[in-house]
């Protein structure tokens, strides 16, 4: 009995020993030496291999960062927290960057811009576009097969009702996969702090847009005209934003006749007038909303909380500083 145990131990132990010798010899010839910092950097990376950094996957990026070929904050997906961790490993400082998100620049659901024909074939926007420039009435509008949804690796974009995708901005990492996947170039990356932007990609003239879609930009230019900070310019029949100048006042969305500009502010502040009001009427002159601020000349004015869009123009012009914006008035989107 005892000998049986000993034989078994010796036989298996011997086999294991031989195997380990073989492997250690093999590692001499085939072993790949890796900089330990590369492994460490790789561990803090998200590991989605999305390629948004411009390198072929997380491994390649980790290698490039360690070699100094890539920026410490180069991983857009990981954001500042990952950049900080990489900075710690390499002893470098990461510069803060504004977080971007993907935005779908089309609101033309089927009820607003219908399909021109029934499409039967490969379920992909790229292939449906081959037939007569796609099934959508508007040539710039969303085809609705969800090439972007399939491209997203973070479950951040989903096909909404009516065939236009919706981005979950909390999950979006601005990797840019959907931007590249959209054959109509409808999706763009915008700073997450810019809440009021145009959601239409049509470069058609107003007359054509009116015929094809009820929520498209007709290039009237009202937004550019009324923008208090001159952040909007009209280029090729579409408003173009200067995100640095934009103060998210929401006036453009308010004046937009087709609602192609979407006011996506999470909480809309409201203006309130205190007792210090002298009734000069300056605020009434600048208020973009009709009948929002009311009151007789010389007497304290009142602001209609319902219609106030929280642009804050009145706050700036009030000579006695009697108006203030109060933030935490949450709106149900």
């Amino acid at each position: 009995m005892a000998t049986g145990v000993i034989i078994a131990v010796i036989a298996l132990g011997g086999l294991g020993f031989l195997a380990s010798i073989g492997l250690s010899l093999a590692s001499r010839f085939f072993g790949v030496k890796v900089d330990p910092r590369v492994t460490k950097v790789r561990e803090v990376l998200p590991g989605a291999n999305c390629g948004a950094c411009g390198f072929a996957g997380c491994d390649a990026f980790a290698k490039a960062v360690v070699e100094g070929k890539a920026d410490v904050a180069g991983c857009v997906v990981g954001g500042p927290s990952v950049a900080e961790k990489i900075g710690e490993i390499l002893g470098k400082k990461a510069e803060a960057k504004e977080r971007m998100v993907a935005r779908v620049r089309c609101q033309g659901t089927v009820d607003k811009s219908p399909y021109r024909f029934d499409y039967y074939g490969v379920e992909s926007c790229k292939s449906s576009l081959v037939i007569s420039e796609g099934r959508k009435a508007c040539t710039y509008g969303c085809e609705g097969f969800g090439d972007c949804v399939a491209a997203c690796m973070f479950d951040a974009i989903h096909m909404g009702e009516g065939g236009v995708p919706v981005v979950d901005e909390d999950k979006c990492t601005a990797c840019g996969k959907c931007v590249a996947a959209c054959p109509k170039n409808i999706i763009i990356l915008e700073p997450v702090s810019s809440r009021v932007t145009v959601r239409c990609s049509s470069h058609d003239i107003g007359k054509v847009v009116r015929r094809l879609c009820t929520i498209g930009c007709i290039a009237c230019g009202l937004c550019a005209k009324r923008c208090p900070s001159q952040a909007i310019t009209l280029v090729d029949n579409l408003p173009v934003w200067d995100y640095e100048k934009c103060i998210n006042c929401g006036i453009c969305a308010y004046v937009c006749p087709t609602k192609a500009i979407k006011d996506d502010r999470k909480e809309i502040p409201k203006a309130f007038i205190s007792d210090a009001c002298t009734g000069c009427g300056e605020c009434v002159k600048v208020c973009p909303v009709k009948n929002c601020i009311t009151g007789e000349q010389g007497k304290p004015h009142k602001i209609n909380e319902e219609t106030c869009i929280g642009c804050g123009l009145c706050v700036d012009v009030c000579p006695v500083k009697a108006i203030e914006l109060k933030k935490p008035v949450s709106v149900e989107a």
Binding site: L12, A19, L23, S27, F30
Partner: peptide, 29 residues
């Protein structure tokens, strides 16, 4: 020869694991 056929599964797994380690090394390289 040693009459330890009951170790068949264990020793075979050992061989296979070693081979896989080897293949992994070669492919990574």
């Amino acid at each position: 020869p040693f009459h330890i056929e009951y170790l068949q599964t264990v020793s075979f797994i050992l061989v296979i694991a070693t081979l896989v380690q080897f293949v992994e090394m070669v492919i990574q390289k």
